[in-house]
């Protein structure tokens, strides 16, 4: 049997990788992908908690984590759709998808 910690370690590693992607990639598409990875890592943790931490609780409560994952996926889909359109608008307007080139919003 796999202990809960291992799932969480997996989740943490994937999350950190996504974080690295956000911090270190310049392509806006890749940044968005990294955000999706981070959301996905959180999903693993949620499902693992649902399986392990709610033992003994009522059945409806035990499934809370999985329902949350549903919502996460829905939000991720919405976010991806909007963000990708913004990326396209950015490209159309500035002819670039490099986030370092888009630093106009400052003092």
């Amino acid at each position: 049997m796999i202990p809960l910690e291992h799932y969480l370690y997996l989740s943490g590693i994937l999350f950190t990788l996504g974080l690295c992607g956000v911090m270190m990639r310049r392509n806006v598409i890749l940044v968005l992908m990294s955000v999706e990875i981070m959301l996905n890592a959180a999903n693993i943790a949620l499902v693992a908690f649902s399986k392990y931490l709610s033992a003994g609780a009522a059945e409806s409560v035990q499934l809370d984590g999985q329902v949350f994952v549903f919502f996460t996926i829905a939000v991720a889909a919405a976010e991806a759709a909007v963000a990708l359109v913004i990326a396209m608008a950015l490209f159309r307007r500035l002819d670039t998808v490099n986030v370092d080139d888009v630093a106009n919003l400052r003092w």
Partner: peptide, 17 residues
């Protein structure tokens, strides 16, 4: 403080993390 408002998304992400 305004010096830290670079406009660079990656810096924000770094600070956020």
């Amino acid at each position: 403080l305004s010096r830290y408002q670079t406009g660079s998304v990656r810096t924000y992400a770094l600070l956020f993390a």
